[in-house]
């Protein structure tokens, strides 16, 4: 479903060109559950942002469902992010002045095409399933970290995306809650058939996934199949 071909991303730092990732060749199939493992500064986050269409590669191609997306404009990329991809971040990244439910429904506001389901119903369903329905009218800073991350996952799922990109989803949580969140992501992969990519520096977290990709100094160095 998503394929990276010879992808490079470099940044201009003053006069110096810094390569964050280079020569990445990677294919992720539908309904996969995998992790990208790397130490800090290895380029794993850049790789995630490239797959999440938040960054454009300086070289190479990103192909989604057979279509090269590296040349699309802001409108088309935003639309793809909105309908195809869901993000889960380490620091949850909820908007604190919106309630739990409003946060979950936010992506719907940016949808440029007709939505075939009732977003309110889906939000209610997701909140019930994740055990945060009772907290629907709370503001994010009034609920626990684990609950906040569940809200973030519900937000990522509201538009029925095919791909969930989770950047250190357990990084701000204690180990027990982190475990719960990982189990939840695993369930989603199984029950909803959604592809889940977890970016992490923790080997323990990576072990939970079926496939691990190891990244070092901006290059994929080993593949566990």
């Amino acid at each position: 479903m998503i394929k990276l071909v010879n992808v490079c991303k470099s940044y201009q730092l003053g006069n110096e060109e810094v390569k964050a990732v280079c020569n990445i060749n990677l294919e992720i199939k539908e309904k996969e559950f995998l992790s990208i493992l790397g130490s800090s500064g290895s380029g794993k986050s850049t790789l995630m942002y490239l797959m999440g269409l938040l960054e454009k590669p300086t070289k190479g191609k990103i192909i989604i469902d057979g279509k090269d997306v590296s040349k699309l404009d802001d409108n088309e990329l935003s639309h793809l992010r909105n309908r195809y991809i869901g993000f889960v971040f380490q620091s949850f990244n909820l908007i604190n002045r919106y309630t739990v439910k409003e946060n979950i429904l936010l992506p719907i506001k940016y949808s440029k095409t007709k939505i075939e389901f009732d977003p309110e119903e889906r939000a209610d369903y997701l909140m019930k399933r994740f055990g945060i329905y009772e907290r629907r009218n709370f503001f994010p800073n009034k609920i626990s970290g684990g609950q906040q991350q569940r809200v973030a996952i519900a937000r990522a799922l509201i538009t029925k995306p095919k791909l969930i990109l989770a950047d250190e989803p357990t990084g701000n949580l204690d180990s027990k809650t982190g475990e719960e969140i990982l189990n939840l992501l695993k369930e989603l992969n199984k029950d909803f058939g959604v592809t889940v990519v977890i970016v992490t520096h923790e080997r323990e977290v990576a072990k939970k996934t079926k496939r691990q990709i190891f990244i070092k100094d901006g290059q994929i160095v080993k593949k566990y199949l």
Partner: peptide, 16 residues
Amino acid sequence: IKEIGIRRAIGATEKD
């Protein structure tokens, strides 16, 4: 700024 980033990630265009 952070909120703008979040909105962009979930599908807001520059125009939005």
